[in-house]
Write a protein that binds this DNA or RNA. Sequence first.
DNA 1: TCCAACGTTCCGTATTATAGAACGGCGTGC
DNA 2: GCACGCCGTTCTATAATACGGAACGTTGGA
Lengths: 256, 256
Amino acid sequence: MQSTDQPTAIDKALDVLFHLHAEDAPQGVSAIGRALDMPKSSAHRLLSTLRRRQLVEQDESGRYRPGIALLALGLGVLAREPLVVAGRAVLEAEAASLGETFFLVAARDGRLVVLEKVEGTGLLRASPPVGSEVPVHATAVGKLYLAHAPELVRNGETTPFTEHTLRSEVALAREVEQARSDGHAQNRQEWLEGLSVIAAPIFLRGEITGAICVALPSTRLAQLEDADVIERVKRAAREIEARMGGPQREAERSRT
Amino acid sequence: MQSTDQPTAIDKALDVLFHLHAEDAPQGVSAIGRALDMPKSSAHRLLSTLRRRQLVEQDESGRYRPGIALLALGLGVLAREPLVVAGRAVLEAEAASLGETFFLVAARDGRLVVLEKVEGTGLLRASPPVGSEVPVHATAVGKLYLAHAPELVRNGETTPFTEHTLRSEVALAREVEQARSDGHAQNRQEWLEGLSVIAAPIFLRGEITGAICVALPSTRLAQLEDADVIERVKRAAREIEARMGGPQREAERSRT
DNA sequence: TCCAACGTTCCGTATTATAGAACGGCGTGC
DNA sequence: GCACGCCGTTCTATAATACGGAACGTTGGA
């Protein structure tokens, strides 16, 4: 694949689709053309093709928005994820029990993606939606991946999100090392102010396939016994592993 | 738009995408080419373009499956639906209270689509997934749409699904008329054997924008007081209407 | 009432997609 | 253990497609 290849018609159609996804409100043909720097006739042709398959829809005034077919496609992806199928019930039980929000996160093509979320009763100020990406260097799950399979994530980024974001590679490496030995990782307001996370890795056949984590307001975590929450998350991870096809026997783990 | 227009490159790429969605297992380039009647080099090129945007992914053996980007796109659609945003909490409350599965269904481009589902505690044998289509002529929601906005659904189909499916247009018209006057509709095993549904329409500004329904085993419904369940569903519909921007005043309803 | 901006359609041109052949790697069956 | 067949991938000349400027009818605001 050369670096000089030009965007195909499919690329341009996907540009339009992702652009609509990124916008809050429905967009008109002209606005889309301006935003993506293409003639409105081109935008119209691409949209017509997408509309035929219901990937985009038009509102009563002719503006375009993402279409209903995306829903079936997206939920089809969820249904294919063994981690989600096995983990959903566990997340629900834990979220109900502790009253906080639990997530499943896994690496996909070098990025950490939220695969499932079950919200707790408390009002959590910020919480990434399912399908969205979370950073590697400033999250508990990121530390777990760096500890157990650094080749699965791209760790180029070092953006400081808050004043608590780890600034030095040494500090991050220390936390990664601790995550490896402890079997869990933490994130104390390193990504989002006021948000603390505790995460545990989920292994399948000796490889990390994802992580379960709980997000709580930092003030709430201070009231709880850290050790209790950590134990809870780790137990949930073991439960998910068991549901995904039983615990790996040592023979299998070392065979690789 | 002429009837003779030929599939564009985008059409072919979407053929590939929907084909992967329809298949259970990941598919190889050659198999896709055979299934869609195109050279495998063409399939490969289309897949490469889709892969760049993570609409498809490859497993370790090189086979393709729907990609994680579809998840974000699909859930973005859900987040945009006011009906879902307003209705989810109501569905959860009702499902927990009655212990049965509640749905939100709405018309999109002439088809009835499941927009949201909250499962009850009971084991429901068959239940359509979110994003899937349900028939018009053999469902409670279909009757509601035929009663209140027949132009929003395509009612060509008359497939008999079970022995209870209404065979005559007259019988269906009678139920539609009753749905209009009663403010709710029922489906007694007309689509799926053993499955009964009670549905109530959700109005916004005088127009039907969807419906809430509960699905229960027919044996279960026989044990309950029909009237109680009906009242419950209708009350839930009113609750969702209220959450979607307040009840419509008569002035607005009759202005059209 | 007028004007501007909208979504849509048209069509000649030029860029693009196409598909057959060839390649290296992998798994199977002989 | 070897060879065959199928896999995913790459290349390239040719044929078909996407492109975009211009024009149309409509709508909403000034």
